[in-house]
Design a protein around this nucleic acid. Structure first.
Lengths: 199, 199, 199, 199
DNA sequence: GATGAATGAGCGTTCATTCAT
DNA sequence: AATGAATGAACGCTCATTCAT
């Protein structure tokens, strides 16, 4: 990579991190392109060399931040020797919601923008560019068990976790994250068992 | 109520219905106060006599539209003689998601804005101004059964339904609403049973 | 007309005259909306209450300035007792090109923008809102003479005058206006005679 | 001419032809230098090595395209054995307006920008770099006839043709080109005769 | 000579809000 | 109470021009 490309990468990263900081602090609607370039200390026009508009940079950030969460969780999973499928799924969920709980600004930024369509397309560089969904499928396959509709099963778990944890973390209503966890994980087990078919 | 008050109420209602029409058609971000007053055929300044800003009128609309959904569902529940608690809950959920499926613009408008805080505060005029949560509590009490943490139970059900149905109705991904329903209702039963305590 | 309407008219006139001044001084391409409102001493947004954009105000000005030229010429024609059709046409042409010669900024502004379509639609308030073309038709009719294709005849005269006088007035090339006039008027007579048909 | 010079000429020609294409397609005001260099597949900075700005390249194109029209007409004139001066002039005019009628985008581009100053300076490479005006002078001389003010005569003819044909070709108003021609050529003869002096 | 990333002034336009009527 | 003309800050975006490579 030449010197020029390196400089370009730095510029782009400066824009991404400035935008992330501002989006999480003030919200997307209250952040202007001017704010972003001022914070990144470059000229307005430069923004448009790298991104189409505010929503372009937002989508890039959502994918990037989401994949980081998932990568971290997955890395930890590999380090440990987790037994059953249920334990694996709960381990990942638990790891991710703990990350989110520590960095609440991330969940505020991601949650309301993370559609199933985006989620299921997030790629994990460390895992051969596989999607999150692919990784779940691998885990399921490795368990040797059989399920009716894997995609629907994962979808229901993801949506349940996403929406309940958002409230628990951000509003602490109607319960805190720690109070939510036992029942959340219990329901995850119920969902898994409800989809299982005898082999 | 005097003639003047009546006129005022009419003005306000005209603003609310114009705003709802525009918000669902073009989205909140693309609707200006100019648009709203033009559509309601009154002067710009008049808007500020009734609402603080665009977000004030939005919140009023969310409450109003949500309560209508719930009222409709509840009215139907009363007409029928539903047996078990599970059947009651599923009846209400089913009725609401069918309403949403028919009027998709409502779910697009409400869903991303409907926090648990708002939901649990929605008042139903027809039912002595009780909140949705109160009505669920009544249903539970009438069943004669006993649950660990009713609020958390209802919260989990509401969040699961809200987030999965949003995707199923709006994107039809990863499944359509009809394909989702059986598994959704099965999970609702699991959640209920997981919270039940022996009497 | 109420006080408010009067104020509105004043605002609009201030915008028109500021725009005219700037357009003729610096050209349309070098005049921004900002320039216009600054010169008219009002806020930028006010411009958009009265005109769609820069080209809207330009077209309004072209019509207005052109009709003024024609009105003046016509008023003078009425005052005098001009004999033949040729003399009438030449009187009007002469009067208009003299006006343009005195206020060269007008011809610079109008000439390159004045299409036949615009010209033939210019209305003269003083003459029952008749178009320029209508007035020519009246003059022709009053002469009692008969012509093959009146519109084409007037068109050729107008275009010849417009284009040759623009150069003569603005560039004084290849001749000055005064040097051009005799031959121009001679050619006008040729055109008229070439279209005349025996009665 | 060295290899380097040849490469430079190719670059310049690529810029000219890209600019011409874009100017005629979208208009000068809507064409940016970015557009031109993108279309010519070179870097932005390169443009400034060859042209001062957009208006520099425009003027070069007008001269170039106009001279091509005139060259074509003149070449055809040479091929034929045209008799009188009137026939020669009308032959050239007719040939040029037919070219313009076939390629309307050229007249749209040239007409509003073609001043007499530019026209009279157009050089014809094939004819010893003579100007258009020189060629007319040659034709006049060859006819053996004598005229008062040749330049003014040619000027009036050129302006009349240019402005009337622009409308006839582009707007087809108030008549089409074919409907215009007979009267236009008749007026040209009148102009010529009006300038002739007895020998 | 050729490049193209970077600039930043400037553009047209929008719109929430005010306030005299 | 109701109006709507007026405001002007702020917006997203463009683009001619520069200059280090």
């Amino acid at each position: 990579m030449g010197k020029v490309d390196e400089k370009k990468k730095l510029k782009q990263e400066a824009l991404l991190s400035s935008a992330f900081k501002l989006f999480t602090e003030k919200g997307i609607n209250n952040t202007s392109i001017s704010d972003i370039v001022n914070s990144a200390k470059m000229a307005k026009g430069t923004f448009y060399l790298y991104f189409k508009d505010k929503y372009d940079i937002r989508d890039r950030l959502i994918s990037y931040e989401s994949s980081k969460l998932f990568e971290n969780a997955n890395r930890e999973l590999m380090k440990n020797d987790i037994g059953s499928l249920e334990d694996c799924v709960i381990f990942i969920v638990n790891n991710i919601v703990d990350q989110l709980n520590e960095k609440q600004y991330i969940i505020k930024f991601i949650a309301k923008n993370l559609s199933w369509a985006i989620f299921s397309n997030i790629r994990i560089a460390e895992k051969d560019n596989k999607s999150c969904m692919d990784i779940f499928r691998d885990i399921i396959e490795n368990s040797g068990r059989k399920f009716r509709d894997e995609d629907l099963m994962v979808f229901m778990i993801v949506e349940l976790v996403n929406s309940t944890c958002y409230n628990a973390i951000v509003n602490k209503r109607p319960v805190t994250l720690d109070e939510l966890k036992p029942d959340l994980y219990c329901t995850i087990c119920s969902i898994i068992s409800q989809f299982e078919v005898a082999v």
